[in-house]
Design a protein around this nucleic acid. Structure first.
Lengths: 89, 89, 89, 89
DNA sequence: GCGCATTGATGGCTGC
DNA sequence: GCAGCCATCAATGCGC
């Protein structure tokens, strides 16, 4: 295992604080993610309550996302081909 | 946020709008989730840049999360026991 | 951890043999997979030697695979919709 | 299996066939890989049906693989040392 | 040595 | 309510 800024003269507490800060930032972000995931579930549940077929709804979302990804993919391929023929993308 | 109940007599276009609203809300939330996920990656990348071992860092996060879950679990069991013996939790 | 056929009267060596057999079958299959993976790498290397752009080649393969998956996906969705409107698929 | 060298003067359609051949060979190999992967899943499923803990089973496989790699690694180092002291490996 | 691509693991959702 | 399935996410390995 390696340690950051392996400098004997360095103030030690700062390293500890830095690590602590990193961990806390990540944990905070993960909490936010969870909150949003829960919101998504809520929306689906509500939709279900309004008579929508959740399974199909999920498919709709997935398809729209896939289409968006495809567009991005096509752009990437185009760039690749342009590079391959010596054009600047 | 409130929503109209699922009324078969309702004007159909409105339902269309409702569906559209649902899809857009979900997609919006998913985008937010992605933004946060990217933020998390950034923090890890930054930590790596500061010499931290990302793999181990992830373990730290995972362990703390597991411990938190376990504590919650223990609390729940404790509450159960307290209720079982007629105590108010 | 649970154990299979937790029967005290059972012949013990058979359990050991069964587990051994499982592990060996998996390891044998994994070896086969590795062989084939190496073959794939060889083909890419050869293609590269013939002047093909491997990165683009990989994209081609990926796109063809994606398209195949999409066709399957569309079939699945069609089935869903048919079911949703009460048709037998 | 042998292949014609990449000759710029070569008839172009043949190159097209060459590309096609490459793609088909790769796709064929990928299919084989998938077949074997499915076989592996089957074995795990069967093991599960016999009461084995799949998660642990996977660990067993992983550990044995790691150990095998380590042994190979040690052999390689040994060979290096033997060569370094003028011994034939 | 880094980034990418594949592969494996985990957790959530659906159907029985 | 649980098992199987699927989708997401992390980890390993490969190539540049």
């Amino acid at each position: 295992m390696t340690y950051p800024r392996n400098d004997p003269d360095m103030d030690e507490p700062i390293q500890g604080n830095q690590l602590k800060s990193i961990v806390e930032r990540i944990e905070r972000l993960e909490e936010e993610k969870k909150t949003i995931s829960d919101d998504v579930k809520e929306v689906y549940a509500e939709a279900k309550g309004n008579g929508y077929d959740v399974k199909i709804l999920r498919r709709v979302i997935a398809i729209r996302k896939r289409d968006a990804n495809e567009r991005a993919e096509e752009e990437a391929i185009l760039d690749l081909y342009l590079q391959a023929v010596g054009e600047t993308a």
